[in-house]
Amino acid sequence: MATFEETGPRHPVTESTRVDKVHPRARLAKNVRAIVVIIVAIMLLFPVFVMMMTAFKSRSDVVSIPPKLIFEPTLEGFVFLLTERSQLSGAALEEARANADELGIFGQVALRNGQRITGPSDFTIRLRNSVIIAFGATVASVTLGLFAAYAFSRFDVPGKGDLMFFILSGRMLPAVVVTIPIFLMYRQLGLHDTHAGMILIYTVFNLSLTVWLLKGFIDEIPREYEEAALVDGYSRFQAFYKIVVPQAATGIAATTVFSLIFVWNEYAFALMLTSQKARTAPPAIATMLGRGGIEWSAIAAGTLVFLVPVLVIIFALRKHLLRGVTFGAIRQ
């Protein structure tokens, strides 16, 4: 034992030997660092916390002075957001009050304002549109981007540099201005206010991002793997499909997340290119007007409901994401 200890390291190696890490109170420093990070995270998340509180506040609690941290939670915001209601009066109201026990929790909240729920709100339809369009556009832009990125990465495409710059150029004009030509074009093509049209336009705008990102990732994959596969009798397409795609999983995941965040929150196109059938949620959330003012709690509730799907996907893919943001810029 003694001899062994003398030849091996005196202490178990828990820290790297990089000098900027190693100092006498490394462990303490690490804890301090963790605490600082958590404090910073709390500060950054405070506005999100405010949003969560607001979602459960009544109208007068939202504007109480000073702002309240403790309040009586109410589901009014969610009721406003998710349901269509009609005002009751006189006998109908009395009758509804008498049968209040039969109502669900939303129904009871609505009844307190003298209202009856008549059905789900437009927001639920818009949420569904958002899911369809975001899913469609993300899948399409990542798939197309993957093909193109592979070809640009592996083959000597004529005029490659210019083509790559061309692909990027679409993002450089303020979106507000681009919407008008696209609007005119969509009217002509019958794509206005259709899911297909929205999927198409988001695919187009994300392609610059996906091609550039994915090319970076595919460049990093050693081409020897494919060469070996080709020698083994794989076709090009098989090599791409069975070798490159699995290798690029991290990059695909990261690209998916960035595409999704863009499509999910996009506002200007959604406003101008849709009216009823294909309208997504973002233009609706910010403009929720109720009885004489902004319905803060409904906006907050809408934002939270709208955040959940992205958050779930980001958590599912977070390992890839942290690695994936290199944008292929560093290739050691």
């Binding site: 609007f183 009217r187 206005h192 406003l271 101008m272 009216s275 233009p283 910010a286 403009t287 007007l289």
Partner: peptide, 20 residues
């Protein structure tokens, strides 16, 4: 059919320009 106030005019006049 209801359109938010902020975009009511924009959407309407765009629709009209296209003779919708």
């Amino acid at each position: 059919i209801q359109e938010p106030w902020g975009s009511f005019g924009d959407v309407f006049f765009a629709e009209m320009a296209a003779q919708g």
